[in-house]
Amino acid sequence: MKADFLKKRATAAEAFTRFDGPPLSLVSDAAGGLFLFYGDPALFALSPVLAGWRLSLGEPVFFLDGNHCFDPYPLVNLAKTIGQNPKTFLDSLFVSRAFTCHQMGSLVLNQLREAMGSHHPRLVILASPLETFYDESVPLIEARNLLHHLTAALGRLAPGHIFVVLSPFPKKSAGRRAFFLSYLKEKANRIFRVNRKENASSLSITEEKPAEQQWIFPLETG
């Protein structure tokens, strides 16, 4: 039984060698930390590869969704591509959607530690967490304070786990709240800016912190 599992795991790991470029190469060696990818909304194409990397090793993955952006289909396609059972992937990826900044705050500040304690994910993906904070019906000061505590909590939780934050550029409607991104930047161990290439078939990933470097991620694989 265990041999079978190890064999499968080895096969999956092998299958993943084709994804030896970014974003995996940027996070896979880390013992933990907060990794911020921000930029073009196409950056969500990075999430299936990231999630698939840990799922293929039989680990659970958390996906905290701040903008109703979880899409299972690329993940299913990826599982098929690398010869894994899509259902196993879908069973091990745990999603929670937050529709307000207070829900997002409560999710990270109050629920996440306990949920991580019961599922032990190594990888936690936060997709568009700032979107909920752009809501103008929440006073700016209230949203800012809450975000401050949320990013501080992420900073505390990150060591020992890989937290990947995918944050598209603030929309014009974010207005004065566009600076919220700086809160995430402040806490991130590594920051990557993601741009869509002009031909639209790949993303360029530029590291801003700690050192400037650039990579290309082909969108077809995402």
Partner: peptide
């Protein structure tokens, strides 16, 4: 005051 209870974690299979 303010809705803060988030959605409970559910697997992607359950979500579908």
């Amino acid at each position: 005051w303010r809705k803060r209870m988030p959605e409970a974690f559910k697997s992607a299979s359950q979500l579908l």
